[in-house]
Design a protein around this nucleic acid. Structure first.
Length: 368
DNA sequence: AACACGGGGCA
DNA sequence: TGCCCAGTGTT
């Protein structure tokens, strides 16, 4: 790293950052717990999306001890709707590990932070630099973009070699003084100025030092491989009620929407035979056989050809045709306190599930 | 190296 | 509709 160049980047970027930046709740605190929590929340998540969750989360779990002592269900409930639900279990597990193995004190160096669940190179660097002042880089999508343009990195940044280049260049920039502010400034620049498309180079404090801008190739960087076509897959759920309750299943943690409660189903029927077996699966349950088995076709509200995230995911082996052991009949008031797949919560609300169970069972067909 | 994992914003 | 985003862990 050319030292005068690095110095120029630091001074200009920090001056720009100090002159004004977005106000974020986790920037107003020095509490490592809140900074750590914010970093978990913001993994692959826009600031605007994560902020309300951050506010609710710190109100619900104001310190590390309260989070560590909470039930996983409560933590997931606070995360409901944000996505990437694995993060909720990771931050919960991390809080427990910090209490158990670090005396309740959040580790202050990136290397130790990286041993905690859900903390990788980015989050370790962000927390170490922002909360504890360690001079380490925090390379996220923004920093990757900014650095690749600043130094005109032509390599594919998704490969190991490309990532290493970016990481090394970023490490050479981080100042000993105010490393956290510098890392945030880099991210801020990437979010507001050095944007993915049509970067605002005339407004950029680093334009004069930027190799991509000098060559006019900034919009072509960073280089990434062509994306693969997403494929829509059919997904079915069963809406089954009995005696004023609805059947919910806690989804396996390793699968999509893992750990949340959903309507039974959610597998990917690959053909007609697979689709029929969902009905078999429903009918196999004893309680269903008693109450609704003969009416499964009538009471089951099956959604097919539902598009999830636009990506293909694995078909789940159908197993023995029994419902998961977590299957549970749940009353309306209890649903409100469970971490339920957000789409299903909306659906249940639309079907009147928030109202007394009698009206829930009443005829409600009405065409406009 | 490739994949899985959510949801929302934007052109 | 396609791409991107304050990434990480598994296979």
């Amino acid at each position: 790293m050319d030292r005068p160049l690095a110095e120029g980047i630091r001074s200009r970027l920090l001056a720009w950052f100090d002159a004004g930046h977005r106000d974020m709740p986790w920037r107003r605190t020095k509490d490592p717990y809140r900074i750590l929590l914010a970093e978990y929340l913001l993994q692959r998540t826009r600031v605007a999306s994560g902020t309300p969750y951050y506010e609710r989360f710190v109100e619900r779990f104001p310190d590390l001890a309260s989070l560590a002592a909470a039930s996983e269900e409560d933590v997931l409930r606070a995360w409901e709707g944000l996505g990437y639900y694995r993060r909720a279990r990771y931050v919960h597990a991390a809080a427990k590990a910090i209490v158990r193995e670090h005396g309740g004190r959040i580790p202050s160096d990136a290397a130790t932070l990286a041993t905690l669940p859900g903390i990788g190179p980015y989050t370790a660097g962000a927390v170490a630099s922002i909360a504890f002042g360690e001079a380490v880089p925090a390379v996220d999508g923004n920093v990757t973009r900014v650095v690749s343009r600043l130094f005109r990195v032509e390599a594919d940044v998704t490969t190991a070699a490309g990532r290493a280049s970016i990481q090394e260049l970023a490490a050479g920039l981080v100042p000993t003084a105010r490393p956290g502010a510098f890392n945030q400034a880099l991210m801020e620049l990437g979010a507001n100025v050095c944007t993915p498309r049509r970067p605002a180079c005339p407004a950029c404090p680093l334009a004069g030092l930027c190799m991509a801008h000098g060559a006019g190739v900034q919009s072509a960087l960073p280089r990434t491989p062509p994306s693969r076509r997403p494929t829509a897959v059919p997904v079915s759920f069963a809406y089954i009620r009995s005696r004023g309750k609805v059947l919910l299943v806690r989804r396996p943690e390793s699968q999509i929407l893992g750990g949340l409660w959903s309507l039974p189903g959610g597998e990917v029927p690959s053909d007609r035979r697979a689709r029929a077996s969902l009905r078999d699966l429903v009918a196999a349950q004893t309680c269903l056989r008693v109450d609704v088995a003969e009416d499964v076709g009538r009471v089951a509200h099956v959604f097919s050809h539902r598009r999830w995230t636009g990506r293909v995911y694995r078909c789940v082996p159908r197993g023995t045709g029994r419902l998961p052991s977590t299957a549970r009949w749940v009353a309306a008031e209890e649903v409100l306190h469970l971490p339920v797949v957000p789409d299903h919560r909306k659906l249940l609300a639309e079907l009147g599930f928030r109202r007394p169970l009698e009206s829930f069972d009443a005829p409600r067909r009405r065409r406009a």
